[in-house]
């Protein structure tokens, strides 16, 4: 076990609904790395992400967060290091935009404590990063799908974890905001060398923003490694069961269905 990795899995086996998502998975995520998870619908990407977040137990194997077994760390302590962006956020009783962003401070506050001026400042800065400034007192049920998505990201940034686990962060976002948000996340996570693992549906976003990728083929087979080595027309054709071609653009290679 290297002493420098942020998250490490040993012989991880994840299993859901009679399906093996991964088996014998050994990965090491170092500080500052950005990993993409790619695979077809229903292959178990979200299940894998939740397992890495400690939200469900693996069938076998171990996960280590900063060299400590994730299964033995209290939830509240995990929440100070790992933050999760879920695919959907629903709120039974909607609050305001600022209240929602402030929820990110929860793991850092004691039980009777109220958010301080400092916490509010953090939340407002995060809202500005996702382009939601001057919306503090809007009720969140009046936001659009894309605005809600950005608010969830702002909540996550307010939480300020070392490891960002993102389930389709660009869901509901227009092209401009897709690139903007991911650019912003890159900038944001470069500050303290935070790491990111994100499920992406767009191979080309992974190509552009991730230095490592995991391809989920099903039946427990996973291909992992540096993006340049793993993302090829061969691997992608096999992954999506559809022939793929590669075109060079000024921003690097672009993959398209043939």
């Amino acid at each position: 076990m290297s002493s420098h990795s942020l998250l490490e899995t040993q012989k991880l086996e994840v299993f859901i609904n009679n399906k093996t998502v991964c088996k014998g998975l050994d990965i090491k995520i170092n500080y500052g790395e950005r990993w993409g998870i790619i695979g077809v619908n229903g292959i178990g990407k979200t299940t894998l992400l939740h397992t890495l977040a400690g939200l469900r137990e693996p069938k076998d194997g171990n996960i280590f967060l900063q060299n400590e077994n994730l299964a033995h760390i209290p939830r509240r302590k995990i929440a100070k290091t790992i933050g999760v962006l879920f695919q959907n956020d629903t709120q039974a009783f909607p609050g305001t935009v600022l209240e929602t962003a402030l929820i990110g401070r929860h793991p850092f506050l004691r039980s009777w404590q109220w958010e301080t001026r400092e916490d509010i400042k953090l939340a407002q800065q995060a809202l500005e990063l996702v382009d939601l400034n001057s919306m503090d007192s809007r009720m969140i049920n009046t936001l659009s799908g894309g605005e809600n998505r950005r608010l969830s990201l702002a909540t996550l940034i307010t939480q300020g974890p070392l490891l960002y686990l993102l389930d389709e962060p660009t869901n509901h976002l227009d092209m401009h905001h897709q690139i903007n948000i991911l650019d912003m996340l890159v900038k944001q996570t470069n500050v303290k060398k935070q790491s990111t693992i994100m499920i992406l549906h767009d191979v080309n976003l992974a190509q552009r923003f991730c230095d490592h990728v995991m391809l989920l083929f099903g039946d427990g087979e996973i291909l992992t490694g540096p993006t340049k080595e793993v993302l090829t027309t061969d691997s992608l054709s096999r992954l999506f069961n559809h022939p793929t071609i590669k075109i060079d653009s000024p921003n690097g290679p672009v993959f398209l269905p043939a």
Partner: peptide
């Protein structure tokens, strides 16, 4: 209940969400 009141706010967002934010 009062010391858990903030946890309750987060529980209203869903169980997984609350769990990810450190709520038991």
């Amino acid at each position: 209940c009062m010391p858990f009141a903030r946890d309750l706010n987060i529980l209203a967002r869903g169980e997984l969400q609350a769990s990810a934010l450190g709520v038991s």
